[in-house]
Design a protein around this nucleic acid. Structure first.
Lengths: 229, 229
DNA sequence: CTTCCATCAATTGGATCCAACCAATGTCTA
DNA sequence: TAGACATTGGTTGGATCCAATTGATGGAAG
C-alpha cells in the first residue's frame, strides 16, 4: 500500500503537530523520508506545500525548520480568522441566504441545542460538537460562492491553533467547557438571526467576536463567577 | 547560468500572468520544463507552490490547470485585502507606532505630496507612486510584528488583481488616474492621522475603504463630475 | 450505427543517481 | 598559540529512469 501524495503531506503535518519535530528544529529530507518509508522526492514536494501553509520555514538558503509561533501569532491568527469569517458573514447577509444554506445552518443549530440541552457535557460530546461546529462554519464560508475567501481561511486554519474547531482543550474541566459551548451555540444562533434579517454589519461583528471564544472566554467561564483580569 | 528554485516559481508565475498559459488551460510538466530549460523536477516543485498560492488548480486526479477567476473573485480578493490590512492598521493604532515606523510612513506621505503636488501625472510617475504605495502598505503591515498576518496578505496579493499596487491600469486616462491617486494619498494621510492618535476603529475602517480604490473609485473620478451608477 | 471493451500512448509520480554547496574539523604556517 | 586554508563528510537540488494510472482511439459485437 503506497501512500498518495497528499497522504505524505498529512503524515508530515501530523509528525510536526505530534511533536516528532519541535518548533525551531531542522527537518532533513532524508530523515523524514525514511521515517515515512518513501523516497526523498515526495518529501521535497511536501516541504513546498507545508512551507506555503506556514508550518515550515526556510532555514537560510538551505533546508527547512519547523516554524515556531509566539503568543502574539496565536492571537493574530484568531483575529485573522474572525476578520475573514466576518467578511463572509457580511456578504452572505447582504446577498441573502439560499434556502439550502438556511436549512443546513438551522440543522446545525438544532443539533447544537439537542447536544447541549441535557445540561452537561461528556467527553464523547466533544467530537459531536466539533463536527457541528465545523459544518456551521464550513457552510457559512462556502456559501460566499467564491473560492478566494475559502482559500484564505483554509490557509489560516492550517495553523494548528487557529482553526475554528480547536476550541476544546481541557477535558478535565468539562464544566467550564460546557458553558463555553453554550456561549458558542448562542453566537451561532445570533449569527443566524442576523443573516436571516440581512443585517450585514451585525453578522460580521458577531462572527469576529465569536472567533475570540477559544481565546478570551475561558477566563470568564470558570467556576468562580467573577473571573480574574 | 542555472536558475535558482525560486526563479522557477517566478518565471512560471510570469508565464501565466503574461498569458502564455490561459485560464482554464492545462499546464503539462514537460511543456513548462522545456520552455524554461530545466528538468521536470523543479517544475513539479513550482507547481506545488503555485497551487498553494492559488494560481494553479488540480485538474481532477491528474495535472494542473491555470485557475480562472470570476468578477466576484476579484471583488472578494479586494475585500479580503481590505479586511486584513484593516486588522493590521487597528492593531498598530491600538499598540502605538514606534518612532521608526512613524518616520517611514511620514516619508511615504511626503514623497506622495511631492509627486502629486505638481497637479498632473506623467507615465513615469506611475512607477514612482507604485513604489511609494508599496512601501506605505508594506511598512504598515510589517509593523504588526507577526508573520501570520503578513503571510495571509502576501498569499492574497499573489492573485494578480488583488495586490495594493495593481491600482493603475489606464495609462490613457492619466487625468482621472491623477484624481484617483490624490484620493489614495488622502487616504494614506487619514490613516496616518488615525494611527498617530491611536484611533483603532477609524484606522481599520479607513484601510478597508482604501482597498476599494482600485475597484469602485474610478467610476466617480472621470471627466464627468457626476458619474454613472 | 452505436456502444462497450481493450489496447496503446502520454503524462504524472516515485526512486535513484549525480553534482554542487555548506559546514566543520584538522593541519600547517606565521 | 592562533588564524587561515584545505579537505572531507553530509545534505540539498537537479536530472534521469522506471512504474503506474489515465485518457483516447479503434475495433468488434450487438
Amino acid at each position: 500500500m503506497s501512500r498518495s501524495s497528499s497522504d505524505i503531506v498529512n503524515s508530515l503535518r501530523k509528525l510536526i503537530s505530534d511533536g516528532h519535530y519541535c518548533p525551531g528544529e531542522r527537518v532533513a529530507e532524508l530523515h523524514v523520508a525514511e521515517k515515512l518509508g518513501v523516497s526523498r522526492t515526495p518529501v521535497r514536494l511536501a516541504f513546498r506545500t507545508l512551507e506555503q501553509e506556514g508550518l515550515l520555514q526556510r532555514a537560510g538558503k538551505r533546508g527547512y525548520v519547523v516554524r515556531e509561533f509566539t503568543e502574539e501569532d496565536v492571537q493574530i491568527a484568531v483575529e485573522v480568522r474572525g476578520a475573514l469569517e466576518g467578511l463572509a458573514a457580511r456578504r452572505l447577509a447582504e446577498r441573502g441566504m439560499s434556502e439550502e444554506v438556511a436549512k443546513r445552518l438551522l440543522e446545525c443549530l438544532h443539533q447544537g441545542e439537542e447536544l447541549l440541552g441535557k445540561g452537561y457535557l461528556t467527553v464523547d460530546d466533544i467530537a459531536t460538537w466539533s463536527d457541528i461546529n465545523r459544518r456551521f462554519h464550513g457552510t457559512l464560508v462556502a456559501s460566499t460562492g467564491s473560492q478566494v475567501i475559502q482559500d484564505a481561511i483554509n490557509k489560516n486554519n492550517h495553523l494548528p491553533f487557529a482553526s475554528a474547531d480547536s476550541i476544546i482543550i481541557d477535558t478535565e474541566a468539562l464544566d467550564s467547557e460546557y458553558h463555553k459551548l453554550r456561549m458558542a451555540q448562542m453566537h451561532h444562533r445570533l449569527v443566524y438571526q442576523a443573516l436571516n434579517h440581512g443585517e450585514g454589519a451585525r453578522a460580521e461583528m458577531l462572527m469576529r467576536e465569536h472567533a475570540y471564544i477559544g481565546l478570551r472566554y475561558v477566563e470568564l467561564l470558570g467556576v468562580d463567577p467573577i473571573a480574574t483580569e
